[in-house]
Nucleic acid binder design. Sequence first.
DNA 1: CTGAAAGCGCTTACAG
DNA 2: CTGAAAGCGCTTACAG
Lengths: 352, 352
Amino acid sequence: LLKRFNETLQETGNPFAMRSTIRDVSRRAGVSVGTVSNAFNAPERVSEDTLGRVMEAARQLRYRPSRAARSLAGRRSFLIGYRLPTPDTWGSLTLDAFLHSMAADASRHDLEVMLFAARPGETITDGYEDLIRREAVDGFVLSDTNYDDARVELLLDRGFPFVSFGRAASTRPFAWVDVDGAAGTAAAVRHLVERGHRRLAMVAWPEGSEVGDDRVRGFLRAVEEAALPDPPVVRVENGVDEGRAAAAELLDLPGAPTAIVTVQDSLAFGVMSEARRRGMEVGADLAVVGFDDVSFSALAEPPLSSVRQPFEEIGRLLVEMLVEQLEGAGSIRSELVRPELVVRESSLGRQR
Amino acid sequence: LLKRFNETLQETGNPFAMRSTIRDVSRRAGVSVGTVSNAFNAPERVSEDTLGRVMEAARQLRYRPSRAARSLAGRRSFLIGYRLPTPDTWGSLTLDAFLHSMAADASRHDLEVMLFAARPGETITDGYEDLIRREAVDGFVLSDTNYDDARVELLLDRGFPFVSFGRAASTRPFAWVDVDGAAGTAAAVRHLVERGHRRLAMVAWPEGSEVGDDRVRGFLRAVEEAALPDPPVVRVENGVDEGRAAAAELLDLPGAPTAIVTVQDSLAFGVMSEARRRGMEVGADLAVVGFDDVSFSALAEPPLSSVRQPFEEIGRLLVEMLVEQLEGAGSIRSELVRPELVVRESSLGRQR
DNA sequence: CTGAAAGCGCTTACAG
DNA sequence: CTGAAAGCGCTTACAG
């Protein structure tokens, strides 16, 4: 009875019509439901004539397959799981661009992104385990991946598809995308050397963070390649105040640097602040280059030169690599993407 | 055969065991699958003894119901749809905290957040239509809601559950959460008046934006309540340069203001910049208060006082209100949340 | 190339 | 309180 009502609604083109099912399409096209399914999922198996009729019927009924049914029958969820980092975590991840590019690219592959958050009292892997058991996602995107990440080990053990933003130490290979931090700081050094600087210095985090150590490495290598003297590296925790203190230390040195590169913009803001306090003009008297190009860097005074991570590209790559796994290409690859040095006034000023 | 293998794996407690189904649990507990389902979804219908046996069996097998099956049989997806704003859109929305609180709160209600992005060439409502037809979500959270938002009309027409972050003009009532911007700017005014300021001014956006007009309204009302003279309001587009220009205009006025409130932090950064350029000390010579408390405001020089929107609370409220609709409470309510004035040096300096 | 049928793993009346 | 059965809307071998 309800069905008849529904069909009437559909035929009158009533926009409030209940949704139509594959059964409705098959009836209208005069074929079996299996053929409708094939028309959508394997059109090459269907004759051109039939395909046309099915598609026309589907169009008229505004048919869209039920995800739950597709999912149950096809044993895939069409969902990519992503656990949000805790907001108070210091992260250089700009979620907006990252999530948007993931979601946009996923939809090109008939996938969507499902978010979840760590629950209090859970282990690092519990949320992932749970989603696997519920067959709620087809694969995961990991971010904020640590050196020895339990999630990587779990997913490798399970043989469950995933890609990671960030490398991790694992004896087994897995798919990751990472930013070539060393290339970023090296680009900063080359830029500064070109501008005539000879006495460089770096403000970095304490040793032991993969990301930070990578950035220091690139800095040191580029300084060496430019045949400059060994530069001082001050190591502090993240923060504007810490950047200030580090700058004070560096600027008090006998042969004080004329250019400072930092591993994060907030440190660079501190460096600029300390320089200004000493009556130096940032840009002219002291060049400063940060890392991550946070949203405020362009608005700072002077605007801060910074190394920008290409989050759009990263999100896209992660999805592509996950899709490759889902489609069974079997290729576990990894990609190191080059960040981009955004040059602004803080490293320009007068040429030396 | 595969089933026997699977059961063996389960019994040996092999962690790599394939997932178990409701059938496995029912067998182990010696009850029917319907009873297992009831044990989970309506425990009051099941005897205590049976409940215990079922739960123990489920625990042993690490059973978790398949979402696809639950979804198909129960006609709900357990998913909340949220379309990401385009990253280049100027928005005062801090996605991190907002999404995290939504995801965390959703999981408390057996829901998850599904992200999608606008596809090129689509209308504003296409993505929502599509997800409804695919039965892919149980409801939507809208943000960046406009005055006359086509999405609101669509969802009301369809009778599909949704909540909106931001009010909109609609003849029909619907569920929304919004920030009381007027209360925020009024709090800024009271703070400044307490500090002894008598000549206030505002830098606002051009008339016609709901959010901006609201913030201006609160400012004007509070100034009037303090019995101060009519304050100048300069209207410019968003941006640091625009803030600079607006400040220049205000500071050139005969009775130049000693305190400036802006509708957005980026404008406030411009105001601070212009003040500094003129040799004024921000805080002491000119008090500045922004709006939105963007991540950099605390790091600015001096740190910027700003009105902060409680995104955690907003995300939580949105989910709660959507859940009420999903559970058929039928109550369409709305909430105006008070933002919080975060006082920093930019509005302190010496007491007047 | 097409159709009939089984099956995915649950929920939900309905009997008993 | 419990079980048997139908059904959700698809996909996927398998015949023909």
